[in-house]
Structures are given as C-alpha cells and as structure tokens.
Simulated scan of single mutants.
Amino acid sequence: MNAFTFARPESASWARTRASISMHTLVVGCAMVALLIVAVLTPGFISLPNLIALTGTLSLIGCVAIGMTFITLGGNIMSFCLGATCAAASMLVAHLSGGGGWLAGLAGIALALAVMVAQGMVIGLFRANPLIVSIASLSLILGVAQYLAGGQTVYVSGDSLSMFKARFLGVPAPLLVFAAAVIAGEFVLRFTRFGYKLILVGSNPEAAEVGGISTWRTTVAAYAAAGLFTGVAGILLAARYGSGSMEFGVGFDYSAISAVLVGGTAIGGGQGSVLRTMFGVVFIAVMQSLLLLYGLDVQFQYLLIGLVVLAAILLQSRSKS
C-alpha cells in the first residue's frame, strides 16, 4: 500500500455501520435545516456584526474540533485540555509577537505540538487512561501558564498579527484558515497511510497490532495532529482578541467535543471524518449564536447544547444495537 492509498477497514458489521451513518446524517441534516430556518427568521442573525462574530467563533471552535476528531477517531475518546492548550499557545504567540507574526505563530504551534505529543506518548507507550491524562495535563497547563504569566493577560505587540484579522476578497482570514484546515485534515484521513492506520487502530487496536501497525506511534501521531490544529487555533485566538489569556480557552473543549459527536464521529473511535466534524461545528456555532441573540445565559446554553450532545450519543447507541 503506497503513502496515498486509503482503504476502509473491513468488518462483518459494515452494512449496519453504513446504515447508522445514513440515519445520523438524515437526523442531523433535518435538524440543521430547522436550525438554519430559525436562524434566518431571528432578528439580528444575518446582520454583519453577528455574521463576523459567528465566523470567528466557528473558526476557533472548528480548528480545535478538527484536532479532537483525530484523537476520537484513534479510539481515545476525547481530550479535556485542548482548550487550555489553545489558550497557552495564544499567550506565547502574544508574548513573542514583537518578533514578528510568523515567528510567534510557529512558536505557538510548536508549544501545542509539544504538549499534545507528550500526552500521546504517555497514552501510547504506557497505555494510560486518555481521560485521566488529559485532566492531569489540564491542571499542569493551567498551573504553569498562570505561574509564568503571573496571572496576567499577555498583549500582542503592534499589528504583527493583522494578517489573521484581514479579509481576502471579502472573506475573513480565520474562515479561510478553518477551510484550509478542514481540507488538510480530510485529505490526511482519506488519502494517507496514517489516516488508514488511525481508523484501523480506532476500530480494532488488537487487529491493528496483529497486522503489524504500531499502535503507539499512531496514537502519538494523532495527538500531534491535534496539537497542530490546536496551535493554529491559538494563533487565531491571539489575533482576534489582541492578547492571550488562559480564560480565552474556557468552553472550547466542550464545544469541540459537541461538534465532533454531533457531526457523527463514533465516541469509541474508528468511524467519522473531519468533513462531518465541520458540519457539527456549524451546527454548534449557529446554535450558540442563536442562544446569545435570545439572551439566554451561559448555564442555559450549556444545558441545551448538552441535550443535543446527549441526543447524538443516544442516536449512535441506538444505531449499534
């Protein structure tokens, strides 16, 4: 098999899996249409300020959600520290922005990569529980970042990150970055050997090992991909607010997990795609925008989104039964 061959792992239940994908697509598609109708009919939704805010939110959550997709597809459920990693990357980007936007951006991505690769190695080599590792990493990231920054917000120097706030042919740069991330992530999953290995490991790690696939290397690579996309989100975060703070990452994990599950990626791994996550991101971002326009507080927003995620999980469970 060459480096650009994609093959879906065979299984006796593939016909049932396809049926479950179709059912999920139908349900989510109908819900998306209904949501968009409500959005268009809601005063202020199609106003320029709201659409600009929506694209910014969609891009930030979207990049983190793409990273979460790689982790979930590999059978490691999810990570609770991507939001904190994104925020820490934004602080480093802001701190180094005086040396130029490209240098600061590369440093932010390198930080996110290092943080996530370290987790991938602990999980892949030592078979540690991915949820426990992510919770421990969250505490470490918060503690170290707050200590180094003295609990202060780090501000961007000048307009070094202005390129990430610009518009190209009327399209906001963050939205273009998100679109590029979707294309790159989907390409990797569909047309590379790593994508094939990741889905096989997520589907059946024992069979993958018997087939000669190094599961720990695949796990580390999945976490590295998550770090890459999360680092990109950190750059966009620093550019959007002109600063970096650990508070900026609050809620990103919840929104990213919601988008991945609503998009149809199996919580147990081995089934899903970045493209499906993109639709989940749009669904969650539009829903959050509507809830804000209707003046609902954050707690009620979490409640409604939680119900949507619960429905997605129940749909997955019903399809497998």
Rank of each mutant, 00 (worst) to 15 (best):
G62Q: 09
T230C: 11
S22T: 06
Q119V: 06
L142H: 07
V154Q: 10
G74K: 01
Y223I: 09
R276Y: 12
L106M: 14
G306P: 05
A225I: 14
P130F: 04
M246S: 03
V64Y: 08
L307I: 07
E186F: 06
G263F: 07
L26T: 11
S11L: 11
C30N: 04
G249Q: 03
G234Y: 06
A266G: 04
I52M: 13
G44E: 03
L73Y: 11
I313G: 03
V38I: 12
K197T: 11
V93F: 13
S203G: 15
V188C: 12
R193V: 13
R127K: 14
F6W: 03
V133N: 00
V274R: 09
P205C: 05
I61F: 10
C63P: 03
A65S: 15
I71N: 09
L315T: 11
C86N: 11
G272K: 04
S255C: 08
A224T: 09
L131T: 12
M91A: 11
F126R: 11
G227M: 03
A31G: 02
I235T: 01
S90K: 07
L307T: 09
A238Y: 07
G270C: 07
V274W: 08
A233H: 10
V133E: 00
C63Q: 12
C86K: 01
G98Q: 03
L291H: 13
G306V: 03
G105S: 15
S139W: 05
A259S: 15
L54E: 03
Y241I: 06
V38P: 00
M246T: 10
V28I: 15
V220G: 05
A112G: 11
R190V: 09
A136H: 05
V33Q: 00
P130Y: 12
F194L: 06
A110E: 01
R190F: 05
G44N: 09
I305V: 15
G195M: 08
T5P: 00
A19I: 07
E209Q: 13
R318V: 13
L73K: 10
S243T: 02
V298C: 03
F248P: 00
F248N: 12
M68I: 01
A89G: 14
L296D: 09
T5W: 05
L96K: 00
V38E: 01
G227Y: 09
G264W: 13
P172W: 03
I46W: 10
L304T: 00
A238P: 07
L161S: 12
F126Q: 08
A224N: 05
A239H: 01
S22A: 15
P130R: 06
A12D: 14
K165P: 03
G75E: 08
S22F: 14
L111G: 06
A180C: 14
A145G: 08
A166F: 04
E247G: 15
R240A: 15
M1A: 14
V38C: 12
I21S: 13
S245R: 01
A238S: 13
V93Q: 02
V286A: 13
L189N: 06
S157H: 03
L140W: 08
S319T: 12
W14I: 11
S273N: 12
S20F: 08
S137N: 07
V201W: 12
G108R: 00
I305H: 09
L142K: 11
I213H: 02
